[in-house]
Amino acid sequence: MKTKNLTCIVCPLGCELTVTLDGKTVVEVSGNTCPRGKQYAIDECTAPTRTLTSTVRLADSEEMLPVKTASPIPKEALMPAMAALQDVVAHAPVAIGDVVLKNVAATGVDIIATKNVK
């Protein structure tokens, strides 16, 4: 058994978590204020994921369109997803939640808009 210290990133409270591991299996989590912290610790030790936020070009506009992954993607898919966003151009009108790119970097997760543009 070994223990590992993590900072929960699920919410801005940033609880300091202590995880007890048996090999790759999480046996115990302490330090979390809420159940989401426990789930985070388990995910972080087995398959860490992150929400990616970035921007894509918007046709006929000087401003970029902010976007995000509809749900967290594996940590190692962050850079491939960034590369996939390079060539995406969105077209107005766009509403928050509109899919801008399907199945980014073969993660099964879509990229969606986070801003309304009329």
Partner: peptide, 16 residues
């Protein structure tokens, strides 16, 4: 454009 907004207010994590 990053996320981390609104967890207290809306109970979900939003971008700016």
């Amino acid at each position: 454009i990053h996320n981390g907004f609104g967890l207290h207010r809306f109970g979900e994590e939003l971008t700016g």
